[in-house]
């Protein structure tokens, strides 16, 4: 018999198969239910094989959730995209700049700044939502994109990760640049930043996952579909005591998950490397 399994790999392989099933079966169920236009049939066949392998393939649920005026899917998606992209861009820009100043600058209080940053990493954002909400109300920011973007860009962990990276860049690199007449900002922009792609992607992915899951804050500061993100719209399916339209819920869920999963499949290597590197610290 041909050895498919090198010594000691049969058990890991079987375990990996179990895990894969544990992940894929719920996902298959999500897709299968989303393709079934008959709510009654969904309820009846729930739990049987029919809720894992599609019997009918209908996109009626998708058409319904994409065109529902009370729950404008694409508006929510645009809101999520705007808030997430803006947060990532601004956060990476201002946090990497600040980190570069602390790591390579000559300001007298740099050590204090670093201490302050490290101290704020420990503050759980959830404990601050109420005063933040009152501040947002005073500043007239409730129900805007800005109020959803602001908390994400003040990210002490991101400053710290950039700081760790920048302080390891050899000083000679910058000294040579100084001879060429580079200003401090130019050293950051043209030397440090191009080198820091791994940190940028690690920070971006961590923050993306955070924004993509944001729920508590958007629930509190958004009222209507104009600025609400997808997660909150999804949560609202469960808000009332009405019967939950499972076909629509699952079509909504699939529509929401697919773009991110496709993006992940394209960027898989970077994604895995970035998440792995995010743990190597402390």
């Amino acid at each position: 018999m041909i050895r498919i399994f090198p010594r000691g790999t049969l058990m890991p392989f079987l375990f990996a198969c179990t895990v894969a099933l544990g992940v894929l079966l719920p996902l298959m169920m999500m897709v299968t239910i989303s393709l079934n236009p008959d709510e009654q049939d969904i309820l009846v066949s729930m739990g049987s094989l029919k809720s894992f392998i599609p019997e009918t393939v209908s996109f009626q649920n998708y058409i319904d959730v994409w065109t529902d005026p009370a729950r404008p899917f694409f508006r929510y998606m645009m809101n999520t995209a705007i808030v997430t992209v803006a947060t990532l861009l601004i956060s990476i820009t201002i946090n990497s700049m600040a980190a570069f100043v602390v790591a390579q600058g000559s300001l007298p209080g740099n050590k204090m700044v670093l201490l302050f940053v490290v101290a704020t990493i420990a503050v759980p954002a959830e404990s601050l939502v109420l005063p933040q909400l009152i501040l947002a109300g005073k500043l007239g920011l409730v129900d805007t994109y800005v109020v959803q973007i602001l908390p994400g860009i003040a990210n002490a962990l991101s400053i710290f990760l950039f700081f760790q990276f920048f302080s390891r860049i050899p000083k000679d690199l910058f000294e040579a640049a100084e001879l060429d007449g580079f200003s401090f900002f130019q050293k950051y922009r043209h030397i440090a930043l191009p080198l820091s792609k791994p940190v940028i992607s690690a920070v971006a992915i961590l923050q993306f996952l955070e924004m993509w899951n944001a729920y508590l804050w958007p629930v509190m500061v958004t009222r209507g579909p104009e600025v609400r993100p997808l997660t909150v719209a999804m949560g609202a399916f469960f808000g009332t005591n009405q019967r939950i339209p499972w076909g629509d819920v699952m079509a909504f869920a699939v529509s929401m998950a697919v773009p991110v999963i496709l993006f992940f499949l394209l960027m898989q290597r970077q994604f895995i490397a970035s998440v792995m590197s995010s743990g190597v610290k402390g």
């Binding site: 992940v23 997660t231 499972w246 699952m250 998950a257």
Partner: peptide, 22 residues
């Protein structure tokens, strides 16, 4: 296997809740 096992992380918690509610 690695690709498959990462998938749950990409689903927002609200979607995960919908799946598990079923």
């Amino acid at each position: 296997f690695r690709t498959v096992s990462i998938l749950p992380l990409l689903l927002p918690i609200t979607v995960v809740v919908a799946i598990w509610a079923v």
